[in-house]
Nucleic acid binder design. Sequence first.
RNA 1: GCGCCCAUCGUCUAGCGGUCUAGGACGUCGCCCUUUCACGGCGAAAACAGGGGUUCGAGUCCCCUUGGGCGCGCCA
Length: 470
Amino acid sequence: MPHRLPQADMSALAIWFPRISMPPPLVRFAPSPTGRIHIGNARTALLNYVFARSQGGGFVLRFDDTDRERSREEFVQAIEVDLAWLGIRPDVTVRQSAREAIYAAAAQRLRDIGRLYPCYETAEELERRRRLQQARGLPPIYDRAALKLAPADRTRLEAEGRRPHWRFQLAPETVHWRDLVRGDSHIDTASLSDPVLVREDGSYLYTLPSVVDDIELDITHVIRGEDHVTNTAVQIQIFKALTDKPVPAFGHHNLLVAAGGEGLSKRTGALSIGSLRDSGIEALAIAALAVLTGSSHEVHPIVSLAELSENFDLAHISRTPARFDPAELKALSQRTLHKLDFESVRDRLAAYDITGFKAEPFWLAARGNLETLLDVADWWRVVEGEIEPVVEDRAFLQTASESLPEEPWDETTWKSWTSAIAHETGRKGRALFHPLRLALTARETGPELAKLLPLIGRAKASARLRGLAA
RNA sequence: GCGCCCAUCGUCUAGCGGUCUAGGACGUCGCCCUUUCACGGCGAAAACAGGGGUUCGAGUCCCCUUGGGCGCGCCA
């Protein structure tokens, strides 16, 4: 497969032309602040970020907020917060709303070279024509009627008060590019409508600002969802019409679909990063699942974002849509938690007032039993707080409390204590341990009691065995 | 409707004509560990969408069917 070779090609080039050093890659993630980011969005952001990191490159966060109607400041903030939580620190942040003069200049340049032409059809007219074409089995493509307008026609229309919207005139050709994930790709512009770049009210649609910013900011790699492949032909043409700079490389990753198979696009109000965070999902689990699923890499828990950059290769992403299953995310989040060492959660534990000399041994004992970090509070209460013990067998617990050894306790205390009880009562297995666990922790399942007992301490243990809240 | 892309275990995938009685991971199930549960370790079951070709030989190449994704906006 040709698209698995570019790495080799690059290094070959570097050997033969050592003086031609590639500029460091610069990627961009370009959300429109019309909502919170969701798992699909976040995946694109993460893929860009991990790619940049793996190549020693930079990451631009660009807010595509040219749609003034729908863009909201609160979403700009929320997106930055969500991205930061995921571990993404943009090197540069820009807003398209602050750059309109640049787009205006670009639009003028396109008019000057005759590639941007005014159209006077109304939205309703266009809609009607599209339906007509579809009914006839034809592709719904703009017929370029406006191109045939004589100057006099325009003058008359303008006199009637009609304001034009502006279309980019596509050159008839098949546009080719070597997609970073999909390999050799091509689009015949004959199957496309000339894209509207400027609205009737003079504002810009996504297409022009996007290309202009990619040029101005020297973006080298455009990594985005597969839903943008068709746009690529248009963007390459606009790019070339505007500048002699090299066209960026494009990589279109597969899309996520819901477990049932239906699309998981931004329109379906998919799981937001914010709600995932609130439900206790680990950011690292989201990152791992987002970049690993749908690729030939095994999905596995990670302990740092950097881990994902190590074997990262866009060519390892599949061209088939991948299912996103929240249950899988949850399970991965749980396994992630079980691997985290104390240092990496120290600050977050402190937020639950889990500090002091018991904090680390507590974490090591409890982490394997957590579904989410939210659960630590419950286990910390078992160790340091007060709980109401569950008494299953009063007489047995009485015996147990009487054989409780004197402190100091360590991890061997549990073994020697329970051996003594077993000896005295003849109990073993579940009959022996279940009542002890219930009395000591008030829960059916939990961390190894050998590790928990010394943290609970004699005073609390003794009281709980006697059925007292402690 | 038209165009582009795709099709291997439940899920994510390896596989680039013989080495595939199809490999891995997650999940599932079983066993072990812990004189309990959870965590952990080990093992098992589980797939080439269907039909035609090409070839000595096809999961691998071609065509059709079926199924799926995306696109076809004065959205991004």
